[in-house]
Design a protein around this nucleic acid. Structure first.
Lengths: 229, 229
DNA sequence: TGGCTACTGCCAGAATCTGACAGTAGCCTG
DNA sequence: CAGGCTACTGTCAGATTCTGGCAGTAGCCA
């Protein structure tokens, strides 16, 4: 196994253990000596991997993805840049910042001439429909990622108000509105909620009993069945 | 210089020469022997770089970008995936395919568990406003990239029809419409054209006399000056 | 205090990379 | 066709890098 492959394997090993792991354990997994492992860790940190080591404890990798060297065509990069610019204009501040950061990271590693092309890239995104979210979409994404319940007040299309506890599993981005897709505890059914009609959003620290992906799949099935469209 | 750095340098050298370059010339640039250069080329091709060599001619790199290993946070990847999905739903077929390809490339190099996360990622994009383009946006993007003129028939907001020859330098994506930003030869001024009002688009093989980036900058300046917004 | 751990410097042997040379084959020009 | 240029491969010895083991320092925890 070449060294660069081994470095990727090391990242994956670190990903699997969420608790701190000793260097010795990692070295055994990879079949290398502890001395070499220390050198590999330094190399990865030098490449920007957020690996933290503490004496007496071990190593932890902060969540993230390591991409190996990758080749993109002109159009693929145009697509990624345009898409990220669109996300950067979305009202979800954290996601928007993440999109900007991702672009900055890519720009940072490109040679000068390409970076200019990217900065002055000629695919522009117009301002979003000026809907100001009353709630923090970051909380919703976090709840979805961690499979946690959410409670909120909802005002439906007819103006009727209600309180809900839901199991959110997807967030839909439409032209003008964003929609939380969830299993509604109150109604015992899949429901979707326009984010601009949600108020007093409260994350609940309880994990909901089902798997996010399973719910997504089931919900998609219900979409296909009843009425076409 | 480490080997992996040298490989990136080699890609950049290839990028600079658009015409075929002999292996010997590349080896001299990098200060390595021709034998080593051949080995490096094989390595890069193995990593997916579209380098083509022909006996008697030299090497050419098909246009594209090589990204070195890169670390992204969870949210940054979410942003890129969401953005690419949005682009994938745009009516520009080539760009949309490029977005899908970029996602596929990223997915291909991720370990299994992460790939599932990505596939089942819970940020969804709704269908685009069903505006069907009468023209091929790919032609517009190509004209912008290569700084070529475009000719077309235009029907303005009042319904008045006209023929234009323009120097396109940007493409704007709004909620429902896409807009070509260009210097209009006919009117001798910056104009923008909704793509759904353009007909009989014809690429012209003549390069326009100004630099795309300069025009973009100048156009932006005119936006800031006259009326606030 | 003792045990576990991260981390560094050093060095010899292992593994890899590199350059030189020789040889085959494809493309182009005259 | 011949001759020049080039891509590409195999081989091998020497240069370079990587690796493992050892010794030592320092931080965390019980």
């Amino acid at each position: 196994m070449s060294r660069s492959e081994r470095l990727l394997d090391l990242i994956q090993s670190l990903r699997r253990h969420r608790r701190p792991v000793s260097g010795q354990a990692l070295a055994d997994e990879l079949g290398i000596s502890i001395r070499t492992l220390y050198r590999d860790i330094v190399t990865l940190q030098g490449q920007g991997a957020p690996i933290e080591g503490e004496a007496g404890l071990g190593y932890v990798l902060k969540p993230g993805f390591m991409l190996p060297p990758l080749m993109f065509s002109d159009e693929e990069i145009e697509a990624i840049v345009l898409g990220s610019r669109w996300v950067a204009k979305q009202p979800d501040r954290r996601l928007s910042a993440a999109a900007a950061n991702a672009l900055a990271k890519i720009a940072a590693v490109l040679p000068d001439d390409l970076r200019e092309d990217l900065d002055a890239s000629t695919l522009l995104v117009g301002p979003p429909a000026a809907v100001i979210e009353g709630i923090d979409l970051g909380l919703v994404r976090q709840a979805i990622r961690n499979e946690r319940k959410l409670a909120f007040h909802y005002r439906d299309a007819g103006g009727a108000a209600s309180q809900r506890v839901v199991w959110p599993f997807a967030l839909g981005f439409f032209d003008k509105v964003r929609v939380v897709v969830a299993w509604c505890e109150t109604r015992q059914d899949f429901r979707h909620f326009r984010t601009d009609r949600i108020a007093e959003l409260t994350p609940i620290d309880t994990r909901y009993p089902r798997r996010r992906q399973a719910m997504l799949k089931e919900w998609r099935a219900t979409l296909d069945k009843p009425r076409g469209s």
